[in-house]
Design a protein around this nucleic acid. Structure first.
Lengths: 334, 334
DNA sequence: TTGTAAGCGTTATCAC
DNA sequence: GTGATAACGCTTACAA
């Protein structure tokens, strides 16, 4: 069942059938209807491989993410896929993990599959040295590369991010204004986004005259139990703190568990702010005040930008920032 | 840059180059090395579209899921993708939502993309009438269809599921043995898996001489607040219950919130059991006793089964069941 | 508006 | 072992 069968049955040439398939206007209505009818009758479906060969594209985008089961990334994937499909693109999913060599390998793999573009979801794809980011710059020579919540300058590379700096700055400022003085900052990892959050924390406390609080900053694996135990340890060691700002809801839930175990009241004795406004922020008790990082807006913007690139749009911005929003719940008293 | 360029440069025919690419043993070591060297030198990558055209496959599997941001499905997707990639298959992700027409449309779409197989992740693809499942039977005429946690009999259809019946039966039996008599059952939706859970609940209470408890069974949207409010309403209306068995951790978290608001102690006044052993079961306070439904095992089994089908394996079972495991935490006192 | 024919870059079947 | 060469099913100039 191919284009020849259809053309024969419809009494036209394959070129005409092809025109009908591709919506070419240079076909008489009568012919178009006839061909369409035959296609329907024969249950004909164009062969996408042959099509890909001729057009050198299969309208497919590679989505790379470190871990599709991560709450934040799972949401991102869901939105990205929805938007891609709305634009008639398929999404090939590629979970890379966190190892650089694997990320390189998988990017190569996607390119060898001739995807029309690559989306890197999450901040874990940008390394600290220029050399280690070379693989992305190289990829961008072949197809547009979209960084959802990552930042890298380069031709054909587009960064769409949340304004994490301002988000944390404002959240911490609110904590300070509500009377908190010893605010702990817990973060999971260093990345462009991670650095911005940290800067937001430090600048907010500097601007409020509390110093940069270097000794109030702690890294912690993205794990509830780790976070809880880290805080318990610090508490036992005598560190005083009346608030915890985190870079992820997971850590905030850990802080909540620490508070419960230490007999601290939230938010009276300990205020806590989460990040990402994930499901966790509504599952915990009390529910977390958290920063909504606007994943959906990030994703829709990513895809619309990508489509602009495909449509040859001039002046497509390489760097788009979206504002976050602080969602107040019950772990803060402002 | 194509196979002709390589063949010219290497001084062999394209047939030989093709043989090298495809690991055909009928090539002398000397020639193979030569060709490999030229491919390397020229940075040649085979064109997957041409390849697909010739082989009529691009080693791609369509993964359908209702919602990639759902905790359970996000995990499933993550495992499925990992296993597919380990077998050198790509995964095209397709989030369908819950509407039947959309599910049909997307399945059609995937088939028109000539995927080599379709995986339906989650129990939401099987409808209650034979007629509404026809679209799956039809698809199975073209490619193998794998149902992860769904059940449908048919040629070329493979169901891999968790033994939900036994899981719930045993969990409820434990509740009864620990002294609970008025056990509420909260479930999110009817499906093959949903029915089995419900049967497990009913049979356990029947077998324990507590009757079938028809009036203790309630449906509730998969939402923390809904679950909390439903229980609050029932409680206010005077319904007595000393335990809640749920079909999903989300509902169990809602039960926890209800307990907190009603001043009920967990597990003393109210025992709660969640389902799926998701992140939520560790984020809540106290942490949920929950049924681990072995998603990973389900997914690895799904892919290994699919590979057996591709390899022409005879006697590939159409129905595989995996046992769940009850994870005891702090919302039960057994 | 329609048809002819030349690609597109492989794989696979023959010969040799 | 290796090389011609015919598929594979489409798109797209170029002609008519």
């Amino acid at each position: 069942m191919n284009i020849y069968d259809v053309s024969k049955q419809a009494g036209v040439s394959i070129a005409t059938v092809s025109r009908v398939i591709n919506g070419n206007p240079n076909v008489s209505d009568r012919t178009r209807k006839k061909v369409l009818a035959v296609m329907e009758e024969l249950g004909y479906t164009p062969n996408v491989f042959a099509r890909g060969l001729g057009l050198n594209t299969m309208k497919t985008i590679g989505i790379m993410c470190s871990d599709a089961s991560d709450l934040y990334l799972a949401n991102a994937i869901s939105y990205l896929e929805r938007e891609l499909r709305a634009n008639e693109y398929d999404a090939i999913l590629c979970c890379t993990g966190y190892n650089l060599e694997n990320k390189k390998k998988y990017l190569e793999l996607l390119l060898s599959k001739r995807v029309d573009g690559v989306i890197m979801a999450g901040s874990k794809f940008i390394e600290s040295t220029r050399e280690d980011n070379e693989y992305i710059l190289n990829a961008a020579r072949q197809v547009p590369v979209m960084l959802v919540n990552g930042r890298l300058e380069g031709k054909n590379i587009y960064s769409i991010l949340c304004d994490d700096y301002t988000a944390v700055y404002q959240a911490v400022t609110k904590l300070i204004r509500s009377g908190r003085r010893r605010i702990l900052y817990l973060y999971t990892s260093v990345s462009y986004s991670g650095n911005n959050k940290r800067r937001g924390y430090q600048n907010a406390s500097m601007d409020a005259g509390l110093g940069n609080l270097e000794n109030m900053i702690y890294q912690c694996p993205k794990d509830i139990a780790y976070s809880r135990d880290l805080l318990s340890d610090l508490y036992r060691q005598g560190l005083k703190f009346d608030a915890v700002m985190t870079s992820d809801d997971t850590l905030a839930v850990g802080a909540l568990k620490f508070a419960a175990s230490a007999g601290l009241k939230v938010p009276e004795d300990l205020s806590i702010i989460g990040y990402n406004n994930s499901l966790l922020s509504r599952a915990s008790e009390p529910e977390l005040t958290s920063v909504d990082t606007k994943i959906e807006a990030l994703c829709t913007t990513t895809i619309s930008t990508l489509m602009s690139v495909f449509n040859g749009g001039k002046n497509v911005p390489n760097w788009i920032t979206i504002s976050a929003e602080l969602i107040k719940r019950y772990t803060t008293d402002f």
